[in-house]
Every structure is written in structure tokens, then in C-alpha cells.
């Protein structure tokens, strides 16, 4: 495990006028660590994710990222072009709705290849081979490489979105309810796939979910959010097996046992 954090988050707050999005969130994320942010809708978890991934500017606080050159950069002081470049090379963002993260009218191969081309890959044969390899890794038949995601099922689209994000070997991936819109059986397959990829690639990930089973399966650590604040955090199995806060106990006791 690396000794320095990939992401340092300090007292991040976001206000929408007088309404609180999230407040005073602080944590550090290390390479290879998977952090689940759980809470109900309106708890601030999505606002926090937007702030962390620079899609929203925090009202106060600081987010620093450990760049590949070994220096920390304050995300708020990065230029838009540089942030976007980071976003499409060193980071990934998996949306709940794959249509938001994919180009629906462009082939599966080009969806995966686009990020390679964006970082300067100029060999068609290699791009196509890499795209094919990634389709296989996310369990999409390679002969679907020229089909558009419009023709794919929800589960396949989500797997394609994951391939598109991981192809440039990012170090940090944000996921917003990655299994949200899927059938239960499809969810299990996707979770298992994500779990394997995160482990094999040594990815750091921040996963926003309201599903504690997703947090249990994928994350090392979790934060529970309520009314914009982190009310409990710790090792995932500690928080789930020995929840301390009233709200966390309520959440954990509300899970349907099968």
C-alpha cells in the first residue's frame, strides 16, 4: 500500500443558497482504496461526489489530488482544460445512467477507443485491439464491437461504460449508484465484475450508493451521510456489523435479510 494519499479532502462544504448540500467533509483516500459513501437521497452524497469530481465547485474547503508527477494540486486552482484532461485520463466517472457516460450513436469500439485517442493513441489496429480486449474483460462479446450501445441491454451498457472509463488505466474512479437501474441478477454480475477489476487494477474508487450490500461487497471503508454531514465512518464491516449512530443503526436494521 502506498504511503501517501491520492486524494486529500479537507472541510469541504457546498451550499445552495442557504440550503446545505454537504458540510465539513474531510477524509483521505489512498491508492487502491475503495470508499463507499452511503445515505438516503438528499443526504448530500451526490453533492459530495460532484464536488470531489470537480463537476461542482465547493463553497469552502480544499480538495487536493496527488498528480502523476508526485505533486499535490488543489483542484480548485486548476484550469478547466487541465481538469478536463485529468478527468478523461487519470480519472473515471461511472454514471448511474449509462446513456450519460456513453456516446449512444457511436460504436462500442469507438466508445472505448475515444479515451485512448484523447491521450494520443494514433494506431487504429492497436486501439481496436485494446477496445476488443476491454469488451472481453467486461464480458461483452467481441463481435459486438461495431454495434452501437443503443442496441445493448442496460447491463451491457453499464459494462461498456465501465470499459470506456478503465481503458486509460485511471487511478481514481467515481461511481454514482453504478448498479442503480439494473435488475438484481444483472447487479450481482456487475458488482462481481467491478470488484474483480478494482482489485486487479489496484484502483482507488469512491462509490456513492444507497445500497448497503453494494458497499459491503465493494468497499474497504465507508462513510454514512445524513443531512449533508458525515455522521459515521470506518472500516466497512465495522460500520455494518457494529453501527454506532442512531441513523446508521436504522439503516442497517432496515436491510431485508434473505
Amino acid at each position: 500500500m502506498s504511503a501517501v494519499p491520492l486524494l486529500k479532502v479537507k472541510d469541504v462544504s457546498k451550499f445552495y443558497g442557504s440550503r446545505i448540500g454537504c458540510r465539513n467533509v474531510s477524509f483521505e483516500l489512498y491508492p487502491g482504496e475503495v470508499l463507499a459513501v452511503v445515505g438516503e437521497s438528499g443526504s448530500g452524497k451526490t453533492t459530495l461526489l460532484s464536488c470531489l469530481s470537480t463537476r461542482l465547485m465547493p463553497s469552502s474547503g480544499m480538495i487536493e489530488y496527488h498528480m502523476r508527477d508526485g505533486l499535490y494540486r488543489d483542484l480548485a486552482h486548476m484550469g478547466e482544460a487541465e481538469r478536463r484532461f485529468l478527468m478523461r485520463t487519470d480519472w473515471g466517472f461511472v454514471h448511474q445512467n449509462p446513456a450519460e457516460g456513453l456516446r449512444m450513436t457511436v460504436s462500442a469500439g469507438a466508445n472505448v477507443g475515444e479515451r485512448l485517442m484523447a491521450v494520443g493513441d494514433r494506431h487504429y489496429g492497436n486501439i481496436r485491439a485494446t477496445a476488443g480486449d476491454w469488451l472481453r474483460r467486461v464480458e461483452i462479446e467481441e463481435d459486438r464491437i461495431d454495434d452501437q450501445p443503443r442496441a445493448f441491454s442496460g447491463g451491457m451498457r453499464q459494462r461498456l461504460q465501465i470499459a470506456r472509463n478503465l481503458v486509460t488505466a485511471p487511478r481514481l474512479v467515481f461511481m454514482d449508484e453504478p448498479t442503480g437501474g439494473l435488475d438484481v441478477s444483472v447487479q450481482a454480475r456487475l458488482l462481481d465484475l467491478v470488484r474483480g477489476l478494482v482489485h486487479d487494477l489496484g484502483l482507488a474508487a469512491i462509490i456513492v450508493t444507497h445500497d448497503l450490500a453494494v458497499a459491503r461487497l465493494l468497499s474497504h471503508r465507508m462513510m454514512v451521510m445524513k443531512d449533508g454531514a458525515v455522521i459515521e465512518q470506518g472500516l466497512t464491516d465495522r460500520v455494518l456489523d457494529d453501527p454506532r449512530e442512531p441513523y446508521t443503526q436504522l439503516l442497517v436494521s432496515s436491510i431485508l435479510q434473505v
Binding site: 482544460a81 456516446r103 469507438a110
Partner: peptide
Amino acid sequence: HALEEYGLMHVKLYEDIARN
């Protein structure tokens, strides 16, 4: 242009080769 996001231009050429 400001953000230098031209990935889509190459995507167009990629799709061309994939199809033709």
C-alpha cells in the same frame, strides 16, 4: 477549442475505418 477536446474528431475517423 479552449479545452482541447477533440477526441470526437478521431472517433469519426475510427468509425469510418471500422465500417469501410
